[in-house]
Amino acid sequence: MIRLKNVHKAFGNNAVLNGVDLHVPKGESMVIIGGSGTGKSVTLKCILGLVKPDIGTITVADKDIKDGDRDALLSRFGMLFQGGALFDSMPVWQNIAFRLVQSGVSTDEARALAIEKLRRVGLKPDVADRFPAELSGGMQKRVGLARAIAADPEIIFFDEPTTGLDPIMAGVINDLIREIVVEMGATAMTITHDMSSVRAIADRVAMLHDGTIKWTGTVTEMDTTGDPYVHQFINGLSEGPIAAIR
């Protein structure tokens, strides 16, 4: 479904991606792990076209993302941003139904769908008329999730879905993501350094370090692999090939 071949990206002298090769088959939930500043977010942004790779090709359903109608391509995606990225000038229901309203769906229909999606992520309908600033961090994540799934996308990206949440709320969000991805049959890509998220969400895991994929495998393989990068990362060791101070 999604394939990255030899993707490079540098910002000035700072090379962030140094030849990323990755394949995410249709319907699979891929989680990319790696330390801060290793290029996880840039990888997702390259696929979405928010950042233009310097070298390399990215294909979605065997079509190069540079070719064809970009809006049509993006309509296949849903994205949960790290900080929610909810539009603070509009109420929750308009955030969730944003794409639908822009595509000409009537206000009543869009609002009803937004409330349905709110229920799906465990929020009550009265949240619909509140503004994002009035919600807790966990509620904002749920609203962000509702917005990501509002148009029933084929591909969903989750950027650090549990950052800033307490462990219980993080568990709730992880379970919700897993349920929704399975229920929708969507292809999912998640970037995180929260190992509880990895174990709850992933079909397969990819380890990104120094702008390249160092290892890929299933969650079970991750626990037993002898790869020094993965071993150091999942066990939170300060000694190993990944420098503790970067």
Binding site: L48, D71, S75, G78, M79, G83, A85, R99
Partner: peptide, 20 residues
């Protein structure tokens, strides 16, 4: 200030992903 805040909180990226 409004658009700058939207940029740093990724709201502008969110607009793009919502085909806007």
């Amino acid at each position: 200030a409004e658009i700058g805040t939207m940029k740093v909180t990724e709201q502008i990226d969110a607009l793009v992903t919502l085909s806007t």
